[in-house]
Design a protein around this nucleic acid. Structure first.
Lengths: 161, 161
DNA sequence: TACATAATTAAAATGAATACAAAATTGAAA
DNA sequence: TTTCAATTTTGTATTCATTTTAATTATGTA
């Protein structure tokens, strides 16, 4: 077993999760795709290359176990599916309406930083914040397109929502 | 037609939504349940009393139309269903893990207030913020229970998650 | 009233997530 | 190593929210 898997094994043991092969590979995938916020489908698809018989149910079970133990964060932004984030600390996300990617975004927030935990008697245990808009890359490439030609603007500039 | 429905008719017309009877009743329901953040099912269930043949699809269609025209806000917090809010302005929500209710919550936020719209080149168009925790009422009733008897605490104090 | 357009309806389809039961794997005890 | 109970994985079936589709009905205008 390679060094990294040994490291992941320790992480799971520390959280009280029995480290099976599929769980290790799922954890490995998540660590390799920290920025991607993958769906269950994406994780399953990719792992099938290594483990041709891994079932979708196992990926669901594993991610739910990881969630319960606070190893990952489940993010629902699109409304249709949960995206998973190995960084389980409170932080904000940004969904680009143009290219669909979800990225971490750092903003000042007293709640996410745990400085404030009660509002009018309501005890806050989880903080969820996200934005929707046009990411920097899409904004830039749109600018470039309109600079080159204005004819195609109405077509290419169409946001998909 | 009563005065209120006339008022709702104007609201729909102003947004470019043809005011049909079902749409008016859905809007009326939403205005009567501003604090409830109802699901599609809840709206449909209730409207069936007035309009026994109203279809679930119509409620879906109507809410989607309202969403597109910015008349309502669709809030996905539980992960399983969309809750609807007639107040479409950017504001935060709070889900109580104990009793399940979703309430509006007012917190200082430069993004929700529209003061800041760009972060590292990413253009923010929508701001979504919500919290999960224990609401004031559940916190208080828990305190009362433990004050009266400690025996039942482990049972009654169990949060459902 | 007639007509075209839009809305409503019911039924079927989709898609994410869960439930369930059987088979396989794990790890500890003998 | 063998045994065995507990846990995990697998595959299938099911649930539930939402969307799609196609037919019917309502709406507003000429």
């Amino acid at each position: 077993m390679n060094t990294k898997l040994k490291y992941f094994k320790k992480i799971l043991n520390d959280r009280g999760i029995k480290p099976t092969y599929q769980r290790l590979k799922i954890l490995e995938y998540l660590s390799k795709n920290m920025k991607n916020h993958p769906t269950v489908e994406m994780i399953h698809e990719e792992l099938l290359k290594d483990i041709p018989i891994i079932s979708l149910t196992t990926v669901y079970n594993t991610l739910n176990a990881f969630l319960e133990k606070g190893l990952v964060d489940g993010v629902t932004i699109t409304g249709t599916e949960t995206r998973y984030d190995l960084d389980a600390s409170s932080h904000h996300h940004f969904l680009c309406k143009e290219c669909g990617k979800i990225i971490d975004i750092e903003v000042p927030c007293a709640f996410a930083e745990g400085e404030k935990t009660v509002v009018r008697g309501n005890r806050i245990e989880e903080v969820h914040g996200y934005f929707k808009g046009i990411c920097k890359e899409c904004t830039d490439s749109f600018k470039n397109k309109t600079k080159k030609s204005n004819i195609s603007r109405s077509k290419t500039g169409q946001p998909n929502r």
